[in-house]
């Protein structure tokens, strides 16, 4: 089971047409990610890491190349199927949290389950349990503007976890947090990884990337390096 490949991309390119000019955001990138890996994707802005994250998260499709997700050919899917993959297989955590401002923590966490068609009683039970797992049981009925930054990110993580996805995709999850709160969030990711989750972390901060077991560096749309991180922060 350790070696089961979840993400398998081959020769992926993404080209944007900017007027007359073609811009290569990704050039022929190939990559495998296995179950229960903890991967950090790094790179300066313009390196293509956002594009790669969007493609890995099934928010965007590559111009060329193949993407197999859990043995499904994602590059051949239409918008509806992609939405279903995002709903069931991928948990997103964003830098700006991206919670719905008018909904309570519980309602935010329930949202992915609404789209997967779960009845409301089951939804509520799952959402409350997941909030408890991220340490927010007592904040279930609060709206985002009544929560601190760290608490908001925990709600977002609960929302990502509630469907028990195959991967968690975190885009600069500590970018809007102070370093102490950021550290707490990274500890939470570490716990999730130890429980068997697969985590992909997109960041440009070296000390955040050190939490991952594998670091992939991008530059100018190419993989510059891909190595095992022997200095992983493990909170043992």
């Amino acid at each position: 089971m350790e070696n089961k490949i979840i993400i398998d991309i081959k020769n992926i390119s993404k080209i944007y047409q900017m007027g007359e000019e073609k811009v290569f955001a990704l050039r022929d990138v190939s990559l495998n990610i296995c179950k229960n890996e903890y991967v950090a994707i790094m790179g300066p802005s313009g390196s293509g890491k956002s594009t790669l994250m969007n493609i890995l998260g099934c928010l965007d499709t590559p111009t060329a190349g193949h993407y197999m997700f859990n043995e499904n050919d994602v590059s051949a899917m239409d918008d509806n199927d992609l939405a279903e993959i995002r709903n069931k297989e991928i948990g997103f955590v964003f830098q700006t949290f991206n919670l719905l401002p008018r909904a309570t923590a519980t309602k935010n966490v329930e949202l992915p389950l609404v789209y997967s068609g779960m009845p409301s009683a089951d939804r509520l039970e799952r959402a409350l349990k997941t909030l408890e797992n991220v340490g927010l049981a007592d904040r279930a009925e609060h709206k985002p503007n009544e929560l601190s930054g760290g608490q908001r990110q925990r709600v977002a993580i609960a929302r990502a976890l509630v469907t028990t996805p195959s991967i968690i995709l975190a885009d600069e999850p500590t970018g809007n947090l102070d370093s102490k709160t950021g550290e707490e969030i990274m500890k939470l990711f570490n716990d999730l990884w130890k429980k068997g989750n697969t985590i992909i972390l997109v960041t440009h901060e070296e000390d955040i990337a050190l939490h991952a077991g594998r670091i992939i560096r991008l530059r100018d749309g190419l993989i510059e390096s891909d190595y095992i991180n022997h200095k992983q922060v493990k909170y043992d």
Binding site: D79, N80, A83, E84, R86, N87, K88, N98, P112, R159
Partner: peptide, 16 residues
Amino acid sequence: TKEIGIRKAIGAKSRS
């Protein structure tokens, strides 16, 4: 727009 983006990211289909 942003809210719709969030909903789509977490799995809302176009018809939803």
